[in-house]
Simulated assay, not measured.
Amino acid sequence: MTALAEAPIAPALGLHDNLSNEEYHSDKTSLSSSGARKLLPPSCPAKFRYEQDHPQPASKTFDYGNAAHKMVLGNGPDLEVVPGPRWDTGKAKAHIAEIRERGGIPLKDHEMQMVKDMAAAIRRHPLAATLLDPAYGAPEQSGFWIDGPSGIRRRVRFDWLSSIHSSRLIIPDYKTAADASNQAMEKEIEKRGYNCQAAWYEEAAQALDLGGPETELLLIVQEKKPPYLVNVIGIDFMSREIGRGKNRVAIETFADCMATGNWPGYGDEPNYLSLPGYAENRDKEIYL
Rank of each mutant, 00 (worst) to 15 (best):
A36K: 07
L13C: 03
K116E: 14
E80D: 00
M71K: 11
R49N: 12
I189E: 02
S166T: 15
P83E: 14
K93W: 10
P106M: 03
A198E: 07
P42G: 06
I242M: 12
N21S: 14
Q183G: 01
G267L: 04
G212D: 05
P106S: 05
W263P: 06
M258E: 14
I171H: 01
S43A: 10
R155S: 13
L40P: 05
P57A: 13
S59G: 15
G265K: 04
R248N: 08
D173T: 14
D283M: 14
L19I: 11
R157P: 00
C44A: 06
E280D: 12
Y50A: 09
C44Q: 08
G243L: 05
A36Q: 01
I170V: 15
K191R: 14
M238V: 14
V249L: 10
V72D: 01
L210T: 07
A198R: 07
K93G: 00
L219S: 06
N247M: 06
P264F: 05
E111T: 09
E23A: 10
M1F: 04
W145V: 02
V230C: 06
G267C: 08
C44V: 02
H125E: 09
A12F: 02
E6T: 09
I286S: 07
E140S: 05
Y266Q: 11
A180R: 02
N281E: 15
D109K: 07
N21G: 07
L19Q: 03
E214P: 00
E80F: 01
T176N: 01
G35T: 06
E186F: 09
E269I: 13
A178M: 11
A46G: 02
